[in-house]
Design a protein around this nucleic acid. Structure first.
Lengths: 108, 108
DNA sequence: TTAATTATTCGTATTATTGCGAACAGAAAA
DNA sequence: TTTTCTGTTCGCAATAATACGAATAATTAA
């Protein structure tokens, strides 16, 4: 009875691996044009401010904040307070992890 | 007046490129553990059937169908009728496009 | 023809996402 | 202190995504 339950859990665990879940989490964060734009920018220029983005992106500031929040939640970017602004940059550690995961996934 | 409108459109077009939108579309399709599992499987074994997936994935068949539909909509996979089954495989053309886009995006 | 197999679509419910403007918070400048 | 600047959070609305079981369609087998 006890072993049976463990086996069921094992099966559920093994079917969808943590690696797949993490890759999907990163992919989901990348899955919007605005967030893709931000990530691409940050991968090329080390950092930026919300105001810079707000000037060029065709969305309200509050909406932009939400996207930045999503990206922070995913771990791909981080914000550093630099009054009165907030400096955003990639979270290098997680960015490299994402690179590794997608490289493997896409067989690059 | 006319040029003004055109400028606004140019700005909107240039800020979010078609390339970014397409990459985001692929990323969104990859952005769920179940779909990630399916894509990873198909990238390794040429094809599979819905029944094969249904046996190992901890979701209802109807839910699985929806995910397959999503993946088809994104262009990453395709289904071929092989009565009474449906054979799923990667859409190689779009898969290669996705590889190219992510390689550039992630600087791999 | 009838039953069995396979997988989709339908109907429904729940939750998540996306978006906006207004209100708010914190620091710096007047 | 009051104002200004930057950016977030709140409140709300609309749409999209996720999930299930039941019903359906299409083909094969009995």
């Amino acid at each position: 009875m006890r072993t049976e339950k463990i086996n069921i859990m094992d099966k559920a665990k093994k079917t969808l691996t943590e690696k797949q879940k993490l890759t999907a989490r990163f992919a989901k964060a990348m899955g919007h044009p605005v967030r893709m734009y931000i990530l691409e920018l940050l991968s090329k220029q080390t950092c930026c401010y919300s105001g810079d983005l707000s000037e060029v992106l065709p969305i309200a500031k509050s909406t932009l904040s939400q996207h930045l929040k999503e990206l922070k939640k995913s771990g791909l970017i981080q914000g550093e307070i630099e009054p009165p602004k907030i400096k955003y940059c990639l979270n290098r550690e997680n960015w490299e992890l994402a690179q590794k995961l997608f490289k493997t996934f896409l067989q690059l």
